[in-house]
């Protein structure tokens, strides 16, 4: 059975680019779900089977850090791994994301090779 991914980014353009980068990296998912912020992401996780989440940090309504914090309180979804994809790559903010369960981070801009290098071992 294949895997499903959830892309969380307020930019539709960036969601398209991340999806394309996954394909260019040779990483095939059965389903690519999308959400524009942390609130939508939580709704998707509660409804769908998702194997890994790729999430931005700087988003309206509910940002990536708040999303991680809220997700960690929900037993049904708290163990789904989240990889941050963001322009925000300072040690403090990535450290906070990891303390809330993020399994790693990719800095924007990125190449498909970088996505494969970081995401590949997590699948």
């Amino acid at each position: 059975m294949g895997k499903n991914v959830l892309l969380v980014d307020d930019s539709k353009t960036m969601r398209i680019i991340i999806g394309r980068s996954l394909r260019q990296a040779g990483i095939d998912f059965d389903n690519i779900f999308e959400a524009a912020d942390g609130i939508e992401a939580l709704e998707v996780l509660e409804k769908e089977t998702v194997d890994i989440v790729l999430s931005d940090i700087n988003m309206p309504n509910m940002d990536g850090i708040s999303f991680l914090r809220e997700k960690s309180t929900r037993d049904a979804i708290k163990d789904i791994p989240v990889l941050m994809i963001s322009t925000e790559t300072g040690d403090d903010i990535i450290g906070e994301a990891k303390s809330l369960g993020a399994v790693g981070a990719i800095k924007k801009p990125f190449t498909p090779d970088k996505v494969n290098e970081v995401l590949g071992p997590l699948l």
């Binding site: 700087n58 963001s86 322009t87 790559t89 300072g90 403090d92 903010i93 990535i94 924007k108």
Partner: peptide, 15 residues
């Protein structure tokens, strides 16, 4: 947004 993230990294000690 991507440029802003880079500029933040340049100007900020710890993000």
């Amino acid at each position: 947004n991507m440029l802003g993230g880079n500029i933040k990294t340049i100007l900020s000690e710890n993000g």
